[in-house]
Simulated scan of single mutants.
Amino acid sequence: MPDTRINELVRMWIDGWIVSRGSSDPIEEPWGWTIDVGQPMQVARHVLPEPTEADVRKIVAATSAPGTWLKLFAEDHSVLPWVGQGWRKDRPGFLMAGHLEPERTEVPAGYTLTSWTRGGVSKVLVRTGDGHFAARGQIARVGDQAVVDQIETAAEHRRKGLGGLVMRTLQNTAYEAGARTGVLVGTPEGRGLYSSLGWTTYSPMASLWYEPADAAQ
């Protein structure tokens, strides 16, 4: 039977992601959604919450444009045999969700935090005392839901609580604006942080893009 919760969470993620990235509205397909992203390395993405071999092979057969991405909510090993040559594997992701509640935040000594909101997207920037980049992130609110995006901490500033600071600040901003449910797709490195903040993993996500050998030259 279809997993309605996964489908619902994936659609939440898409709705917030397109606001966060300024992409086109999603086009509904029998197997999921297509999004025109419009970047040289990511022209479009096909999102399949419940990928089947038949659907993936059909999309792959119709793909000729480098920079076409597949976001397949399944384990890498189960979908890789379906794509063939020219498809390259990105890091796996994890679909996660959490209930948003106000959180206490404290900026560690030696850092400053700046936050702002434009067009429904709130951003947080953490810098050192002398202005060097340390961490960042953003969150896009759509109604009572919010999607966390582009969380990043500079290598030399990791394990100092900055990722948690960014997340809590973004969650508080979204909560104050009326959001109560948060959704994200996290990297393997970020999954531990989000889990420690109370987020739950619902599905793995395989991420693939099309780059035939002649396009990479």
Score class of each variant (00 low, 15 high):
residue 14 I to H: 08
residue 53 E to N: 01
residue 26 P to W: 06
residue 46 H to I: 15
residue 46 H to D: 13
residue 80 L to N: 10
residue 55 D to I: 05
residue 80 L to I: 15
residue 70 L to D: 10
residue 51 P to W: 05
residue 73 F to K: 04
residue 64 S to L: 06
residue 49 P to W: 11
residue 71 K to C: 06
residue 50 E to N: 08
residue 41 M to S: 09
residue 68 T to G: 05
residue 59 I to A: 05
residue 35 I to G: 00
residue 54 A to R: 14
residue 19 V to G: 00
residue 24 S to Y: 03
residue 55 D to Y: 03
residue 69 W to N: 08
residue 12 M to T: 13
residue 39 Q to P: 00
residue 66 P to N: 02
residue 21 R to L: 02
residue 84 G to D: 07
residue 68 T to L: 08
residue 71 K to L: 12
residue 49 P to H: 09
residue 81 P to Y: 04
residue 60 V to N: 02
residue 29 E to V: 12
residue 77 H to C: 00
residue 71 K to Y: 11
residue 18 I to N: 03
residue 46 H to W: 12
residue 36 D to W: 02
residue 54 A to K: 11
residue 84 G to V: 12
residue 79 V to T: 14
residue 23 S to R: 08
residue 77 H to G: 01
residue 40 P to N: 03
residue 63 T to H: 02
residue 21 R to K: 10
residue 87 W to Q: 08
residue 11 R to Q: 13
residue 54 A to W: 01
residue 34 T to M: 06
residue 54 A to P: 01
residue 49 P to Y: 02
residue 18 I to P: 00
residue 72 L to F: 01
residue 52 T to Q: 06
residue 67 G to A: 04
residue 76 D to F: 01
residue 64 S to V: 13
residue 79 V to R: 01
residue 40 P to D: 07
residue 83 V to I: 15
residue 68 T to F: 01
residue 42 Q to G: 00
residue 16 G to F: 14
residue 68 T to P: 04
residue 36 D to R: 12
residue 35 I to H: 08
residue 44 A to W: 04
residue 15 D to P: 06
residue 32 G to S: 06
residue 35 I to C: 05
residue 46 H to L: 10
residue 85 Q to L: 12
residue 86 G to P: 04
residue 71 K to D: 09
residue 76 D to Q: 09
residue 61 A to E: 14
residue 62 A to P: 03
residue 14 I to A: 10
residue 45 R to Y: 00
residue 68 T to C: 09
residue 38 G to C: 11
residue 58 K to T: 15
residue 41 M to R: 04
residue 24 S to C: 03
residue 23 S to K: 04
residue 15 D to H: 07
residue 63 T to E: 00
residue 16 G to W: 11
residue 34 T to Y: 01
residue 58 K to H: 07
residue 19 V to N: 09
residue 66 P to W: 13
residue 17 W to R: 13
residue 87 W to P: 09
residue 14 I to E: 06
residue 83 V to S: 00
residue 53 E to C: 09
residue 25 D to V: 09
residue 74 A to H: 13
residue 49 P to F: 08
residue 19 V to L: 15
residue 54 A to E: 15
residue 48 L to W: 10
residue 79 V to A: 03
residue 74 A to K: 12
residue 66 P to S: 05
residue 81 P to F: 07
residue 29 E to D: 08
residue 16 G to K: 06
residue 24 S to H: 03
residue 21 R to F: 03
residue 63 T to A: 01
residue 41 M to E: 07
residue 67 G to Y: 09
residue 44 A to I: 04
residue 26 P to I: 11
residue 52 T to Y: 11
residue 80 L to P: 01
residue 51 P to L: 09
residue 55 D to L: 03
residue 87 W to L: 12
residue 20 S to Q: 04
residue 16 G to L: 06
residue 14 I to S: 00
residue 34 T to R: 15
residue 48 L to P: 03
residue 23 S to Y: 12
residue 68 T to Y: 02
residue 79 V to D: 00
residue 71 K to T: 10
residue 63 T to N: 03
residue 65 A to Q: 14
residue 53 E to A: 14
residue 20 S to K: 08
residue 29 E to K: 09
residue 67 G to I: 08
residue 23 S to E: 12
residue 38 G to W: 11
residue 40 P to G: 03
residue 59 I to M: 10
residue 12 M to H: 15
residue 36 D to C: 05
residue 21 R to W: 03
